[in-house]
Design a binder for these strands. Structure first.
Length: 566
RNA sequence: GUACCCUUAGCUCAGCUGGAUAGAGUGUCUGACUACGAAUCAGAAGGUCGGGGGUUCGAAUCCCUCAGGGUACGCCA
């Protein structure tokens, strides 16, 4: 595909030697409106070099760029040099590229040979998968797909919370009040009940906490009974989680969670001691980080057992050895910012230069209208319920508007789940939000169903118009403002994917496909597509095809399906 | 108490590494279905970018400060 920015860099570089190609590339901007041009080069920085007013420099530059095949017009506007792209070249290059690459349009090999670890979702065993888990799960999945699409060699890790004192609690609670059959029938809820009951009782009776600690120690010592219970609880919980993962169409490469690293920690503690990083304080062992403006990182408890900082350090070291990662990414809530800063600093202090490749990708908090989520107090909204409710609402809408649709259940699932996922990936990760049923179940405006609807509509046009990708198309017929606007958005799509990867922000893609859908709907409402004139029809269908492909790819990267009918 | 994050239209949010007149959606009001799919489109109204300083040719964007909200701070993860 033609790279218009590079063409501008070449033109400017030909006239101005004092700026490097990179500097020129970086200063190229998009004007506020396309009436003013497709790209703009501001001359402010040159005014110091040439000791002239920027608007004079801009004028002088323009006079040198008259005849050029890639830009139909170059003009100055005050201090800016504005470039107007050659529209037929733009449309032709983007359409030919989409035609050639199809559903691979926007992919690349920039990540070739680089291993990227994406740790996300990571629910706690025996606790419900609630609305609070949706963010890490959905953001992580999207990032995983984005990196993969850009050629990175990815590993999706579900770092299950399957170890720790809480397990001692569960085992103790099960031994006191548990019933295997009851739990088998409704694992998460029953285990949650045990968990809540144990916490309530433990507040009244301190001795229970000792029992929990006892059972956790037994588990670590590989006591057969404890081990068997642990395996069983882990298995039935995972089975429940997989219901949600199936609905979301998410798979992991490994479920190596906390337990997996439990035997890798003593070595780390020893290493910290050998490197003189460990300090004793009030019976516990820690790494002092005062020098770096952070509270100390606790490594070993009074009783000798380890903490999750130790576990994360051990996991990172293991992963470096085993995978030799290029980036080791953690999609974990912003509440853990300090924790990540601490342990990554400790890894750095241990002398591992790859500490900088461990990246925490934080996101904001979800709360309920009446306050914070709390598993212990049973104040949660289950993710499964959210998804099911969205699917039900969608099903009703389909019954109303498109009752003859084939496989309504399947489509309702794709659209309902898609709506939830889309909403989750629509804004910057860091923003907190309050969960609202109204918002989750609204399918109008900038929503997943809107984009999916546009896709289905485009598909229907292609079918009715008997679109054939082999047809030769006269691109010069696509010359209206809307058609060019659409082409520009399609043209920018590959760059948007790269930006999304660089910033670990899937919403760049969400916003781009919304823009494409909006522009296409505008086009659809203003220009007939299935018309008599064969040449014109073919060209408009080609544009429709481009829109359909890019929307589908974009949705796919977000983990959302694109049904052909809905 | 200390550190970090957030604050843009009634509501929910965009605004690319500072750049040309601050944009969407939603809600409100108005208009378009015997129409290629109305989960759509067109239009109107709606903003001292939390307040105040500073840096700069230029600040919603960078720095300082104040206010409001949130999160985290040694034996949970």
């Amino acid at each position: 595909m033609l790279n218009f920015r590079n063409k501008i860099v070449e033109l400017i570089k030909g006239e101005v030697d004092s700026l490097s190609r990179e500097e020129i590339e970086e200063s190229i901007e998009t004007p506020p409106s396309y009436d003013m041009g497709d790209y703009a080069f501001p001359a402010f920085k040159l005014s110091k070099v040439f000791k002239k007013a920027p608007n004079i420099i801009a004028e002088e530059l323009v006079s040198k760029f008259d005849e050029n095949p890639y830009f139909e017009k170059v003009e100055s506007a005050g201090p800016y040099v504005n470039f107007f792209i050659n529209k037929s070249k733009l449309i032709e290059t983007v359409m030919e590229e989409i035609k050639e690459k199809g559903n691979k349009y926007g992919s690349s090999d920039i990540g070739e040979g680089k291993k990227v670890i994406m740790e996300y979702s990571s629910p706690n065993i025996a606790k419900p998968f609630h609305i609070g888990h949706i963010r890490t799960t959905v953001i992580g999945n999207a990032l995983h797909k984005i990196y993969k699409f850009l050629g990175f060699d990815t590993v999706a890790i579900n770092h299950l919370g399957d170890y720790g004192t809480q397990f001692g609690m569960l085992i103790a609670a099960y031994k006191k009040w548990g019933d295997r059959e009851v739990i088998e029938n409704d694992p998460i809820n029953e285990l949650l009940k045990l968990y809540i009951k144990f916490n309530e009782e433990a507040e009244k009776n301190e001795a229970l906490k000792d029992e929990a600690r006892y059972w956790f120690r037994e588990l670590e010592e590989k006591n057969e009974e404890a081990l068997e219970l642990w395996k069983w609880i882990r298995k039935i919980s995972l089975k429940e989680f997989n219901k949600v993962y199936d609905m979301l169409n998410i798979e992991f490469d490994t479920y190596a969670g906390e337990s997996f690293y439990s035997d890798k920690m003593p070595k780390v503690i020893k290493e910290l001691e050998d490197k003189n990083l460990l300090k004793e304080s009030e019976g516990a062992h820690l790494v002092d980080l005062e020098e770096y403006g952070m509270p100390p990182a606790l490594i070993k408890k009074k009783d000798g057992s380890s903490l999750y900082t130790t576990r994360d350090i051990a996991a990172a070291i293991y992963r470096k050895d085993y995978y030799d990662f290029y980036k080791n990414i953690y999609v974990v809530a912003s509440q853990q910012n300090l924790h990540f800063k601490q342990w990554i600093k400790v890894v750095e202090l241990m002398g591992y230069e790859w500490a900088k490749d461990c990246i925490h990708v934080p996101f904001g908090m979800v709360s309920l209208e009446d306050g914070t989520l709390s598993t212990r107090r049973g104040k949660v909204i289950f993710l499964e319920d959210v998804l099911n409710k969205a699917v039900e609402s969608t099903f009703k809408i389909i019954e109303e508007r498109n009752p003859d649709l084939d496989n309504k259940e399947e489509v309702a699932k794709q659209v309902g789940v898609g709506a939830v996922v889309f909403q989750e990936l629509f804004n910057q990760r860091i923003k907190d939000y309050v969960f609202s049923w109204d918002r989750t179940l609204s399918f109008e405006g900038e929503t997943g169903p809107y984009v999916q609807y546009t896709h289905a509509r485009a598909n229907s046009l292609l079918e009715k118009g008997k679109f054939n990708i082999e047809d030769n198309v006269d691109y010069t017929l696509l010359d209206s403002d809307i058609e060019i606007d659409i082409s520009r958005l399609l043209y920018n799509f590959p760059q948007v994917i790269v930006d999304a990867m660089k910033k670990n922000e899937p919403y760049f893609i969400t916003r781009q496909i919304v823009e494409i859908a909006k522009m296409f709907n505008k086009f659809y409402n203003s220009s007939p597509i299935l018309i008599e004139d064969e040449e014109l029809r073919k060209s408009r269908l080609m544009l429709t095809y481009g829109v359909k492909e890019v929307i589908k790819t974009g949705l796919g990267l977000l983990g959302i399906e694109a049904p052909n009918r809905m």
